[in-house]
Design a protein around this nucleic acid. Structure first.
Length: 304
DNA sequence: GCGACAG
DNA sequence: ATCTTGTCGC
């Protein structure tokens, strides 16, 4: 008996060592040579203790998470339902961070505020920042959220009247391995209603971008059509949404803070002039443009 | 014993 | 996340 157990143990150790050899000496250098894939590199450089610290921080913040519509959001949605195109003094913010090509630290954080429901731009702010944390799937907020909070501080100090009633974040809300994506993180830190909008499916809780999923996408016949994203636990963590008629690839909407799934989807759909809702889209393209205009690359900090 | 993984 | 041109369709 014990001999069999020892033999199995040795076999697993050998298999493990082969695996590590393959990973460290063959697979990783190959992936590093491929500029498409930054994830593998990021994965390698996250120390275990940091990961645990981040997980604890997520647990703490998650205690403050509220997944119901707050009063303001209900009002905002009511205004839209009457198909009244007059503005009602509501503001929606969009945030995004754009990166400098071949540069691991320099990036631009952007914040835009649009009037709702006319989607007219009333405030914008862009700031070059130096990233300190890597991108680790599941921990996006630790890389981006501090800069976003900083932009909101500036907004509050300079133009408080444009402080928004809702934030849209480029990334997921509760559609996340721990049901606490970057939209939740940002929403709780700001204590504002927040919605996560992702352009690709985060494959969690049994959700997969497989044939079955693609079939469901085909069934979205027109703009506004949705299907729920249900994970193994049976919980609906978000919706796939076809933004409008002329766009087949859906976006993935999930609540971040102080909104329900249903309201999140409807509000995002109200903001979709293109595939991606205007707040996120403007933050994205404008911060990219800001880099082009204002950032002069130096020989330092360039990736090999 | 690892696998997949938003930006 | 980032880099690419034209091309297809409305």
């Amino acid at each position: 008996m014990s001999i069999l157990a020892r033999a199995l143990h040795i076999v697993f150790m050998i298999l493990g060592n082969i695996w590590f050899f393959v990973r460290d000496y063959i697979a990783v250098p190959l992936r590093l040579a491929n500029p498409q894939d930054h994830r593998s590199r990021a994965d390698e450089i996250l120390p275990n203790e940091v990961r645990q610290k981040w997980e604890r921080e997520q647990d703490e913040l998650q205690k403050k998470l509220i997944l119901k519509d707050n009063k303001c959001i209900k009002e905002m949605f009511k205004c839209h339902k009457v198909k009244d195109c007059k503005d009602h003094g509501y503001y929606i913010a969009g945030v995004d961070i754009s990166f400098v090509k071949d540069d691991l630290v320099n990036a631009c954080a952007g914040l835009v505020v649009l009037r709702f429901p006319s989607l007219k731009l009333v405030y914008e702010d862009y700031k070059m920042v130096e990233l300190t944390e890597p991108y680790i799937p599941g921990f996006l907020a630790f890389r981006e959220a501090p800069f976003i909070v900083d932009l909101f501080d500036t907004l509050k100090q300079t133009k408080p009247k444009y402080y928004p009633h809702l934030v849209m974040v480029d990334g997921n809300g509760i559609l996340h391995p721990k049901e606490f994506g970057s939209a939740c993180h940002v929403g709780v830190l700001l204590d504002l209603p927040c919605i996560g909008v992702a352009k690709k499916l985060f494959q969690v809780g049994g959700l997969e971008n497989n044939q079955e999923h693609k079939e469901k996408i085909k069934q979205l016949k027109k703009g506004g059509a949705t299907f729920p994203l249900v994970v193994d636990s049976g919980r609906t963590l978000g919706m796939a949404l076809r933004s409008h008629d002329g766009c087949t690839k859906p976006i993935y909407v999930s609540p971040g803070h102080l909104v329900t799934v249903e309201t999140a989807v409807k509000l995002v759909h109200c903001c979709c002039l293109k595939r991606v809702p205007e707040p996120v889209r403007l933050a994205d393209i404008n911060s990219r443009e800001y880099i082009r205009q204002n950032f002069k690359p130096t020989t330092d900090n360039q990736a090999t």
